[in-house]
Design a protein around this nucleic acid. Structure first.
Lengths: 295, 295
DNA sequence: GCTAGACTATCAATAATTATGATATTTAAA
DNA sequence: TTTAAATATCATAATTATTGATAGTCTAGC
């Protein structure tokens, strides 16, 4: 079985054009490299270097093998890096769940930075409705959740307030509600509300529907799609509907009551007592700072 | 520097779930594997196997490293395969030049088979006008050429007849020539011919133009494009123009003389005296048989 | 054309690593 | 409980790699 030490000698000697220089760089004696290359040539049955001149030059065959040798070395360095990552107690993978309405460009920026800081930690990014996120975090299936706050504080989960997102009531421009002004809660009742509810059929308690005939989606984007089809009205993040309000496709509903929170708090959630490795810590802090900076 | 032998032990032991089984497979004694794994663990600073039970089971850390270890082994096998390919005197790369009108599906089929037979030989496939192919083959820049035969036999190049391709004179359906019947050579003279000529400005001698005002292209597809634009008429391979004749966009020209070859021979060309490795030989034979079978 | 410096191959001796065989201990199944 | 098979450990043997010295060769500079 071939030795990586010899492969390294091949690559270094080829780059430096000298066995002696290679030996110096490896902290060995010249004859060690000479022997190493020679043995490699014997093992492979291929003459790698042309020694007729003073400085050994790769043969065409050696050239052909060099590319593969470099890839092999790179792979072995990768392997060692992963081992180092493990000894630093970095997690092998982090699973984060984000409410789809919070999948902002900020998040991708942070993930890009994370990839640089922890190149050997994988990320599972799953998109869930806020009501589902607490459950998956509590179950331990998700390490960090980014979600709209629930009033009922789950005892198994730690919350960390990081900011808030403005919600507005919107409907299609041709929807009956669009024409009306200064509406009260009871005015909305006759019309179907589209709201978010998780797969466990638990609706959010901050944006709870008061209409008797509601439809439910598991993502804000689905809600948006139904609103565009004039199936009903909905509370949606301002940033999500802004572009369509601008083009006139959707319209904000002019509601006068304000006992509903228009600014919905966003929390970072983690399983209570979960041991946090460096990657977890880093990502948690980065998310916290990013959302604070965003407003 | 880590040893591939130990990496192999890691992978085999993980797959077999047993150090002893791994040792048997490697033709070593059990203690060798035990030591090998142990040393690897010490080098990496990572506990790879959980030995509490009878059969060692990978730890989560070991699991994480296993994937990378397998990739590393695969890479090293690849390296050795290339070395074997070299000792079999297989060429590192073959350059083949094909007249663009001969780039048929048959060719891709052959190349797919070639890739299976010689996975470590690279292919440079370049598309040239037939008049240019002889020159590049003679220069040694191209190993095998597939082209329409030239009358003048180049002394530096070996020819091998493999079949023929039918050419027809065509023009756009609205081109003046389209309406005429039973034309003679002199009838074509007033109209511009579009013909193929290599970058060295040498036209093919089998499809030489007799019109005084010709335009030249370096590929049959370019010729076709100009004919479609009613810029002139041209001799083109029947298979190339057939679809457009069928839709009525182009029309065959009804010429009565037949001293021009309508069926143009196709030759495989190689540099005379060039040493042919196994890959060259294989590809040459495959091309020869394919073109013979095609008609 | 010659010399100094630097390069490589080779060799024998030595150091280091790796493999072996025997043994004790543990484990899972009969 | 017993048995068969697995693993860890250890001293020893075998193999492999490293070293230092030497001789031959090439190139640049004078």
């Amino acid at each position: 079985m071939l030795s990586l030490e010899q492969i390294n000698m091949l690559v270094l000697s080829a780059e430096l054009g000298s066995f002696s220089a290679c030996a110096r760089k490896l902290g060995k004696v010249q004859s060690a490299v000479s022997h190493g290359i020679n043995n490699l040539e014997i093992d492979l049955g291929v003459e790698l270097f042309d020694r007729t001149s003073r400085s050994p030059k790769l043969t065409p065959e050696g050239e052909r093998l060099l590319r593969s040798a470099k890839a092999l070395l790179a792979q072995s360095h990768e392997f060692e890096k992963i081992a180092e990552s493990i000894t630093r107690h970095e997690e092998g993978a982090l699973t984060i769940a984000v409410d789809d309405a919070l999948l902002t460009p900020y998040l991708s920026t942070i993930l890009a930075l994370f990839a640089q800081a922890f190149p050997h930690v994988e990320i599972d990014l799953i998109s869930l409705a806020s009501p589902d996120i607490i459950a998956t975090v509590a179950d331990g299936n998700v390490d960090i959740g980014v979600m709209f706050s629930e009033v009922e504080a789950n005892k198994q989960v730690d919350f960390c307030y990081v900011g808030s997102v403005d919600f507005v009531a919107v409907c299609h421009a041709d929807f009956p509600l669009a024409a009306l002004r200064r509406l009260s809660e009871s005015d909305l009742m006759p019309y179907r509300q589209i709201a978010v509810r998780g797969q466990q059929k638990r609706e959010s308690q901050v944006l709870i529907s008061m209409t008797p005939n509601a439809w439910w989606c598991s993502s804000n984007y689905s809600v948006l799609a139904l609103v565009k089809q004039q199936i009903g009205w909905a509370y949606l993040p301002l940033s999500l509907v802004q572009p369509f309000v601008h083009t006139g496709l959707l319209q904000k509903i002019d509601v006068t009551f304000d006992h509903k929170p228009w600014s919905v708090p966003v929390d970072l959630v983690c399983k209570k007592g979960a041991l946090r490795g460096p990657a977890h810590q880093w990502l948690f802090d980065a998310l916290k700072n990013a959302f604070s900076a965003e407003r």
